[in-house]
């Protein structure tokens, strides 16, 4: 149990670090990583990209990951595409059912 709590704390700390890398864009995140790696090499600061945890790790701890506007826009577009795909699938199945029924009724 204690081990579990330690692990959670460790992941949560990592997630907080992760947010630093998720500043405004992937380029800024990469620059931040470069700076951290340089600090780490000179013996200052934290340990560079070893601390990098993915957004998925952050979600597992209940931590919130703040997306950039660009990422939010991309997610919205993907969500719309998924929604349209589901609607198209439902319409397709409905059509197949009706056409098959019509075939059978028509003999």
């Amino acid at each position: 149990m204690a081990d579990n709590n330690d692990k959670k704390t460790e992941i949560a700390e990592g997630a907080v670090e992760d947010r630093r890398y998720r500043a405004q864009s992937t380029d800024e995140a990469a620059e931040q990583l470069d700076r951290d790696a340089a600090e780490s090499d000179s013996g200052q600061g934290h340990t560079g990209h070893d601390d990098f945890l993915s957004a998925r790790d952050a979600r597992a701890t209940g931590e919130h990951y703040r997306m950039t506007p660009e990422e939010e826009k991309s997610r919205k577009r993907r969500s719309i595409a998924i929604a349209l795909g589901i609607v198209a699938f439902v319409v397709l199945i409905y059509l197949i059912t009706m056409l098959r029924l019509a075939e059978n009724v028509g003999g």
Binding site: T26, H49, F52, S54, T68, E71, S74, R77
Partner: peptide
């Protein structure tokens, strides 16, 4: 992407920028 990151880290950076057209 950044050269010093592992593939997984690079993938994570790119994750949220994928467009429907990329999947197409």
């Amino acid at each position: 992407m950044t050269d010093h990151l592992t593939d997984d880290q690079n993938e994570t950076l790119a994750f949220n920028l994928a467009q429907p057209g990329d999947y197409f």
